[in-house]
C-alpha cells in the first residue's frame, strides 16, 4: 500500500489588511500636510497666557509683509552674553537684513517696496514673527521703519491656545 505523504500546510501571510493600513496612512498624510511657505522661518513664538491671538484662517489680511526676527540663541537658550537676546537677522521676502547694526534705510526701502507691491492700501499690514527670546531693542527699529514706510497696521504672531 502506498503511503500517503503528509502534505504540509502552505503558510502565507495575508497582506490585504496591511495594504489597507498603508493606504489609510497615505490618505492621512496627503490630507493633513501643507507645503511650507518659504516666507515663514521657524522661530519660537511667544505663547501668552489666555492667548487672544486670532488663528490665521479667521483673519482676512491678504496684503501683508512678513518679517521674521530670528534669534541668535540656540533653541534651548544660552547664557552667552554675545548671543543672549540678540537677533541674527531680519528675514523679509527671503532676503536677510543685518541687525547689528540695523540698516534703517534698507529696512524702510524694503517695507515701502512691499507696500507698493501689495496694493498700497490702508489694509496693508506688517506681520512680525519674532522669536520670544529676542530683546525688544531689535523690534523697535522695525516698527519705526514700518511707520516711516507708511504702514499703519501691524500683526504680532503668537501661539494660539
Amino acid at each position: 500500500m502506498a503511503r500517503q505523504g503528509k502534505q504540509l500546510a502552505d503558510l502565507s501571510l495575508n497582506l490585504t489588511p496591511m495594504i489597507d493600513c498603508v493606504f489609510q496612512l497615505m490618505l492621512f498624510f496627503i490630507l493633513t500636510s501643507q507645503a511650507a511657505s518659504q516666507l515663514i522661518v521657524p522661530v519660537e513664538l511667544a505663547h501668552p497666557l489666555e492667548s487672544k491671538a486670532i488663528a490665521q484662517d479667521k483673519l482676512d489680511s491678504p496684503h501683508k509683509v512678513i518679517v521674521n526676527v530670528v534669534s541668535a540663541e540656540p533653541d534651548n537658550g544660552s547664557s552667552d552674553p554675545l548671543v543672549m537676546g540678540k537677533a541674527v537677522t531680519y528675514r523679509i521676502n527671503n532676503r536677510d537684513f543685518t541687525t547689528q547694526p540695523v540698516d534703517m534705510d534698507a529696512l524702510r526701502s524694503e517695507l515701502r517696496a512691499a507696500k507698493d507691491a501689495g496694493g498700497d492700501d490702508d489694509g496693508f499690514c506688517l506681520e512680525i514673527r519674532g522669536d520670544k527670546k529676542v530683546h525688544f531693542a531689535f523690534f523697535e527699529p522695525l516698527m519705526r521703519a514700518a511707520g516711516d514706510a507708511g504702514i499703519s497696521r501691524m500683526n504680532i504672531s503668537a501661539r494660539v491656545d
Binding site: F29, I30, P42, S51, I54, E127, A146, M154, A158, R159
Partner: peptide, 23 residues
C-alpha cells in the same frame, strides 16, 4: 511623507496698529 513631515504649532495674530511717521 514620514521623513518629510514635521508638525508645527498653530499660530495666530494679535492685531495692533503702528504709530504715524516718527512714532
Amino acid at each position: 511623507f514620514l521623513l518629510g513631515t514635521s508638525f508645527r504649532e498653530q499660530e495666530g495674530q494679535l492685531l495692533a496698529s503702528l504709530p504715524e511717521k516718527g512714532g
